[in-house]
């Protein structure tokens, strides 16, 4: 496949890979796929290295026309993808041909869907990544969201498309079935700055995702949290998954496009395996936080990575 043409933009459609993790020490936002797990799986299905760039959609997906033949996979939130009007399966290798039209509906559950293409989206690397960083207006497609009449270049396939046919993720492994679970976190680094009753409130009550939520972060609304003294700290490292609480007592969960430094107390940090689930929350969804010990979180991470490794091996040709 040579190009993907955008026919209709969708709500917010961007090119994302796994972000600029190595450049955070230079004060750079990482950016990258919000639900990195779904992107990684999409890449595995289409025979790409896990870090290849794909297309991230938000709630209302785009309409895309393929220029050339190739294999794609749709992962993440189930947005009822259709190829030329016919339903196609999520989490599966799909053959597309020159001129085919891909379209989506708004997902019932979840927020972000990923389109992976065998060969990956091929745009210029900025600081080692193809991710779009909207606030900095760099990366991805001219540093902005995809709009109609954009032609997105596709790279050469890594694996012959014949070998990719039939690849799919078994139903019980599809992460979208977990979208409604609790969001687990580890207390700290500044949980000691909150009153004991507020720490209890935080895990007993649910918090609603407000409309002020985007790739930078999710503002939540729920039982007000109280600081022992105040909400301010010396500007400290922040990263996607950090739950910071300013003086109004309402938590903000930082997401992929967040700044890398900030001066508010952090009550906790969402664990690695649950950050993709958080990325699938949308305004109006309610969140039940659950605290777990770090050892357990690291075991869950190891389990996930082992599973991904096995998936890669099973699909290795």
């Amino acid at each position: 496949m040579e190009y993907i043409e955008c026919k209709k933009a969708g709500l917010l459609t961007t090119i994302q890979d796994l972000g600029r993790q190595k450049f955070q020490q230079y004060g750079i936002s990482s950016a990258g796929a919000m639900d990195s797990l779904s992107l990684r799986i999409g890449n595995i299905i289409t025979g790409n290295p896990e870090h290849f760039a794909g297309i991230e959609t938000t709630l209302l997906g785009p309409e895309l026309i393929f220029h050339g033949d190739g294999i794609i996979a749709i992962t993440g939130a189930d947005s009822s993808p259709k190829l030329n009007g016919e339903s196609i399966e999520m989490w599966s290798a799909i053959q597309v041909n020159n001129g085919d039209l891909l379209s989506f509906a708004i997902p019932n559950s979840g927020c972000r869907t990923y389109v992976s293409i065998s060969g990956g989206v091929n745009v210029e690397d900025i600081m080692g990544s193809k991710s779009t960083f909207l606030r900095g207006e760099y990366g991805g497609f001219e540093g902005r969201a995809i709009k109609s009449k954009d032609f997105i270049k596709v790279g050469p396939p890594v694996i012959d498309s014949m070998k990719l046919k039939g690849r799919k993720l078994p139903f019980h492994h599809r992460p979208d079935s977990y979208f409604k679970k609790n969001i687990r976190f580890i207390w700290g680094p500044q949980d000691n700055r909150f009153t004991d009753s507020s720490k209890e409130d935080f895990i007993k009550n649910t918090y609603e995702v407000t409309n002020q939520s985007d790739r930078m972060g999710y503002r939540l609304d729920g039982t007000k949290l109280f600081h022992k003294d105040n909400a301010d700290i010396l500007s400290d490292y922040i990263a996607p998954g950090a739950i910071q609480v300013p003086s109004n007592g309402q938590p903000i969960v930082l997401m992929a496009d967040c700044q890398m430094s900030g001066g508010y107390t952090k009550i906790g940090m969402i664990i690695g395996v649950d950050l993709p689930l958080m990325a699938q929350k949308k305004p109006g969804d309610s969140i039940q936080f659950e605290s777990i010990p770090i050892e357990e979180a690291q075991n869950l991470w190891a389990k996930q990575e082992k599973w991904l490794y096995l998936l890669k091996m099973a699909n290795h040709n």
């Binding site: 993790q21 190595k22 955070q24 020490q25 010396l234 500007s235 400290d236 490292y237 990263a239 890398m260 430094s261 690695g272 770090i294 050892e295 690291q298 991470w301 190891a302 990575e305």
Partner: peptide
């Protein structure tokens, strides 16, 4: 350890827990 990030009065050490734990 994949990166070492400094701020005003702290250091964040990013690590891969598959290789080394807390």
């Amino acid at each position: 350890v994949s990166s070492v990030i400094t701020t005003m009065a702290s250091i964040a050490v990013k690590y891969d827990s598959l290789i080394i734990q807390f």
